[in-house]
Simulated scan of single mutants.
Amino acid sequence: MQPRIKICCISSQEEAALAIGAGADALGLVGAMPSGPGVIGDEVIRSVALELPAAVAGFLLTQECTAQAIAEHVHRCAVSTVQVVNHVDPAELGRLRASLPALRIVQVIHVEGADALTLLERYEPHVHTFLLDSGSPSAAVPLLGGTGRVHDWKISAEFVRRARRPVFLAGGLRPDNVREAIRQVQPFGLDICSGVRTDGRLDPGKLHAYVAAIRTPTS
Rank of each mutant, 00 (worst) to 15 (best):
R4W: 09
I5C: 03
K6Y: 09
C8K: 05
C9H: 00
I10Q: 12
S11N: 14
S11L: 13
A16H: 07
L18E: 15
G23I: 06
G31N: 05
G31H: 05
M33T: 11
P37V: 01
S47K: 13
V48Y: 08
A57C: 06
G58Y: 14
G58E: 10
L61H: 11
Q63N: 13
A69I: 01
I70G: 02
E72K: 06
R76M: 04
C77H: 03
N86W: 15
H87A: 15
P90L: 05
R95A: 15
R95H: 14
L96H: 12
V106Q: 02
V108C: 13
V111C: 05
D115W: 08
E121Q: 11
P125V: 02
H126L: 07
V127W: 10
H128R: 02
F130H: 05
F130N: 02
D133W: 04
S134C: 01
G135D: 00
G135N: 01
S138N: 06
A140R: 02
G146I: 01
G148L: 12
R149Y: 04
V150S: 13
V150W: 00
D152I: 06
S156M: 05
F159G: 03
R162I: 05
A163V: 00
R164I: 00
P166Q: 12
V167Y: 06
F168N: 10
G171P: 10
N177V: 10
R179K: 14
P187Q: 07
P187L: 05
F188G: 02
L190I: 04
I192P: 04
R197H: 11
G200Y: 09
G200W: 03
A212Y: 12
A213I: 12
I214M: 14
T216Q: 15
S219Y: 09
